[in-house]
Simulated assay, not measured.
Amino acid sequence: MAKRYFLVLHWYILGTLGDLQEVLRRECFLRPPTNYSKSLPAKISNEKGQREPLEVFFTFGGSEIEYIKEENQRIYMSIVYEEKWSDPRIFDLEENKGCWGKVPLKYLRDNFWTPALVHWNARKHSSINTMMDDNLGYALVTPDNYLIYSVALTVEVNCKFQFDQFPFDHHDCPYLVTNWFDTTDYVVLKGNMVNQTKGKELWVETTQVYEVEVTLLEDSVRFDGFSTPPRNLSVTGKNYHFRRMLFPYITTFFAPMVIVVYLSMISFWIPVEIVPGRMSMLVTLFLTSVNLGISNQANAPPSNKVGAVDLWNFIIFGTHNGIIWEYAYLLFSRFKFCKANKGIANDSKYSEAMREFTLWTNRVDTISFWICFITFPFLLIVYFSLNIK
């Protein structure tokens, strides 16, 4: 997959140069000018004769997210990009004028200045072996005196994720690139993306967990206070906006607990005097709900704040407890009734009192049922309205 992205980007850039095969057939061996310095990039003279920093055009190609480790907030992905710049010191030499085509990448790096790019928030990176095509081992010199070469990497990117709103969470992970050894006095990075138009959304990728929107970041300057002396560095990059896909959690996280709550509401239609059946049903469903809640909490990403999962468990457990306490109140009332009427157990007055008490418990159960039946969906609507953004 990474090699495919690499080739697409390579051909996209070359498309501006004319016939691809003609460019790759030509070879251009640039000669280093006398007293040429690899340590400093060339400054460009503007129309007023003032010396300006060298512009390095950084074009992002496709990227493929391999996987995401939420526990240590790392993203593993394959990326490709092109670097493009013009060094007037090279082409001022008469021998290099009119030279264009491919040049061995190793020869270019060994003899000329090339951007020393650093991936700002990458913790690990390694080159992808794309040398199956010999053309990928070359840089290109364009007819308008630009140097271009492509890079393909596998990268481990460090991102700051906040999981308080899990599973409604979404995160921004900027991927930043800078030219580490040259300040903004010498080098300015100009970011671009293949088919990118004014920083709008380029494409949407889908991982196993997230939907990912990729956009170009505005070029900026970052202050490096760790260097001596401190310096300003040109920074470009793109932003990965991760939005968790909610549907898998509806079927595995929310729906089972909602079903258990509605099943517990059936207990309102079981007569109060059938204690074993009603109580065993309530306790079993409550323990099922607790088990589901603990499982969901354990599978959620780590967070040190009260979040959406905690609020969800509070709603579910609170509703269950309300149903259980309502039955406990009715049992207590029945116990008091039986105790108060113990001496007249065989009297007709007792039968009438028991009938009235049963009607009262039925009314309490009916009212409680409708309160739960209306309040619980209302709480769900409020919960999802607050969290889905």
Rank of each mutant, 00 (worst) to 15 (best):
T319M: 10
E205P: 00
V235A: 02
N313P: 02
A300E: 02
L263E: 06
F254N: 06
L311T: 12
V235Q: 07
P276W: 08
P301E: 08
V309M: 10
G293A: 03
Y262A: 03
Y249P: 00
S295A: 13
E218V: 13
G322M: 09
E273A: 15
A300T: 13
L216I: 04
R243K: 13
G307L: 08
F286Y: 07
Q208N: 11
P256G: 03
W312I: 04
I323Q: 14
E213H: 07
Y327V: 14
S220K: 10
V275L: 08
L263F: 06
A255K: 10
S280K: 14
D219H: 05
W269L: 04
L246P: 03
D224S: 11
R231S: 05
I316F: 05
L233W: 01
R278P: 01
L330M: 15
N321V: 11
P271L: 12
L285K: 00
P230W: 01
I324C: 04
F247E: 08
L285C: 01
F223I: 14
F286A: 08
V261E: 09
G277A: 15
H320D: 05
F317S: 09
A328N: 01
R244P: 02
F254T: 07
Q208K: 15
L331K: 02
T215Y: 01
V261T: 12
P301D: 03
N232R: 15
R222T: 10
T215V: 09
S264M: 10
M257E: 10
V272H: 10
I274R: 11
L282I: 13
T215R: 12
V258S: 00
N296H: 06
V214K: 08
P276E: 12
S227K: 14
K238L: 06
R244Y: 11
I324Y: 00
L330E: 09
P256M: 09
T228Q: 11
V214M: 03
V260E: 02
Y240C: 08
S220P: 02
N291Y: 10
M257G: 00
G322Q: 10
R222V: 07
V306E: 12
M281E: 05
V261F: 05
I274F: 11
F254R: 04
